[in-house]
Amino acid sequence: MYDFELVKPSSVDEAVKALADEDAQALGGGQTLIPTMKQRLASPGRLVSTLGISGMDGVSAEGGVLTAGGAATHGAVEKGAAGSYPALAALAGNIGDPAVRNRGTIGGSLANNDPAACYPAALLASGGTVVTDKREIDADDYFQGMFTTALDEGELITAVKFTIPEAANYQKFEQPASRFALVGVFVARHAGGVRVAVTGASEDGVFRWTEAEEALGKDFSAAAVSGLSVPAEGMIGDLHGTPEYRAHLVKVMTGRAVAAAS
């Protein structure tokens, strides 16, 4: 990989200052970024590590909101959410493998917005906000297509807030090689309605399946989605599945998530 300068700030302010440089990029656990840099597909001149920033790695729940620090590892989310938001804990506990979960961070994952990542589905279905050094971005506004988010250059995710639903479940159908989601569906039943977010499937990245949300809002049961269908158009087609297959899986995984959540 290309060489760079590694900066290890201890506060958000220091990090933001270091990120102001045009060539700078935030480094969470690096579990995606480092392999990308090895392929020389990314060439930041400066990496700003978030792991040493004090107060950015905690996970806590209060008043129906679970807050994870931007530098909380997947492993920390798995442990920290276990009591308050088990569906999120289970999701975090199935990202990558144990060693990856000890390094990879929620902020890093959401900043990258891989179309097959798990967290985007959780955040979008939960509702909530991405907290940065300068603002809070609503989940519905945050995801803007594959690898694209509402973050500005140099903007740092300091925390992620999830609205804890009454019932929720995430079903991940794994791509056999990468073990990322071939299709992942997060179903969350809130007092105000049901939210269904789908990852892995669409060429536009994570999305809400509104038709299912409406049907489940009336009848929160697997049967409610059995008559629906997802159009294959716009779904990803690759070595591991056609658009039709992914569209089919969206429905199957939604049904299973509902069954497991209710």
């Binding site: 690096g30 480092i34 990496l47 390094r103």
Partner: peptide, 8 residues
């Protein structure tokens, strides 16, 4: 446990 090839 960490993957030492994915950590500086």
């Amino acid at each position: 446990a960490v993957k030492s090839c994915t950590m500086f």
